[in-house]
Design a protein around this nucleic acid. Structure first.
Lengths: 247, 247
DNA sequence: GGTTGTATATTTATCATATAAATAAGCATT
DNA sequence: AATGCTTATTTATATGATAAATATACAACC
């Protein structure tokens, strides 16, 4: 039996539950994956529901199935890491600094280019969204508040302003990563960070692609440095924390 | 009734067929999506199959569904462009130079960084794969053969050698894009291109990250330039070709 | 011994039908 | 005009069949 709280319905709940179980290694490509009937019994649902959940995970590259051979967990290299659900499951439930660092390398590749494109292409509403995010950061800094939400909004607004659909789609992934990594990095929230963000914004508004790219690169490199620092600080406790996350 | 040839089974065939229909605009977030019963009749399959196919597309962000409200096509901004199937469907069936250019901008962001990381991290087998790809390019150049396969292998080997799982996952997408874009760009396959590739390879083998990054950037910028040139050349015929692709 | 073919059992694939739950739309009430 | 109720439609879920695929074990053969 599974609570239907998380998802909108049973299928989603079970897909979520199985997805998390897979990325955390409860099932793996070595160990056998339970047979349909067994999972139906375990979750107390009909075959329809269970099969639909399995198909969703198949679509994300986590599972495969064949008659008589059963259902199996795909090799990790087949997982769609760039699927928002998969990334979220991995960050939230199977956290490792290595994973966060690898994703931040993606950010380091994309976001400066996005800022450069945004400087060239941003329309009025894009500029307004970027400006609003900066205003929000300044405001929460004044109130000694957590600037996470405007920070996320800032990065998403720039990705969107790039006019590149692929960059936009990364926004959701970056949101997951930011929302999660703040718990890990105890990042600085002071004047300096806001000023660094504003540099990017100013360059974009001014239409200066080169400067926007450089400023964004500095920003993400800074984030990467903080993650590495947190990794150093945490490494003695990492195993314990990882074990806790698994529970 | 639908032939089961393409996919491994009915569910996959229908997911593929519906997926293509969605990205090509046969159904859209404006126009109504057929009701389950209608689609079952149209494809001549049971509800189970149809629902599983719909759930797969839901997992890729293409569809949504609610009781009484029916099934609908999600706004395009919710589509998982970074899903290999979705990208393939779009490139093959809804080709536009804008899309190819946007994806090449992703390559332009990622691949130089991947080359830099590969220069630092590539292990013996990675190096061997890269060298083999170059050898393959030289060989097909000697035989006046199409170097597409070794070219693809080259890019994938470098992404893999970066040691970053997210970069690796882009390999599949880049393969789809390369395999497709060659039909569009009539790219140069001569000595110059092979030499440019070898520059990247040499830098990686030498462990020179900076040089590898620069060489790869030149390579992808060149590809982007060729696409833009092809776009200029093709624009008068573009509408005809797009219409043909839709058929 | 090793290869190749065959029978069998297991598991997913597919189908058919039924009931439940959610909700859009129309209607009635205020 | 706003609100609440009724109804019809659609997906969500359950159940129980049959079909197809294939891993496994075994038999036959060279």
């Amino acid at each position: 039996m599974i609570a239907t709280g998380r998802g909108q319905n049973l299928t989603y709940s079970i897909a979520e539950d199985l997805g998390v179980a897979i990325v955390t290694g409860t099932y793996s490509s070595n160990s056998p994956f339970p047979v349909e009937a067994e999972l139906c019994k375990r979750y107390g649902v009909s075959r329809s529901i269970l099969r639909e959940a399995v198909k969703m995970l198949t679509a994300k590259g986590l599972l495969g199935s064949r008659p008589r051979r059963g259902t199996w967990v795909q090799d990790e290299e087949n997982w769609n890491l760039l699927d928002p659900d998969v990334l979220r499951w991995m960050l939230e439930r199977k956290f490792s600094f290595a994973l966060l660092i690898e994703f931040t390398q993606v950010r380091l590749a994309i976001e400066p280019k996005a800022a450069a494109l945004a400087a060239a292409n941003a329309g009025p509403s894009d500029r307004a969204a970027i400006a609003a995010a900066i205003a929000g950061m300044i405001e929460s800094e004044r109130l000694q508040d957590d600037p996470l939400e405007p920070d996320i909004a800032f990065h998403i607004a720039i990705l969107h302003a790039s006019g590149n659909g692929f960059y936009s789609r990364l926004g959701e992934l970056i949101e997951a990563a930011l929302r999660f990594s703040i718990r890990m990095t105890n990042r600085q929230t002071g004047v300096r960070s806001v000023a660094e963000h504003k540099k990017v914004s100013d360059a974009i508004i001014a239409g200066d692609a080169k400067r926007a790219e450089a400023a964004m690169q500095a920003l993400v490199e800074d984030a990467l440095a903080q993650i590495r620092k947190a990794e150093q600080a945490a490494s003695p406790r990492q195993r314990i924390r990882a074990a806790k996350a698994r529970a």
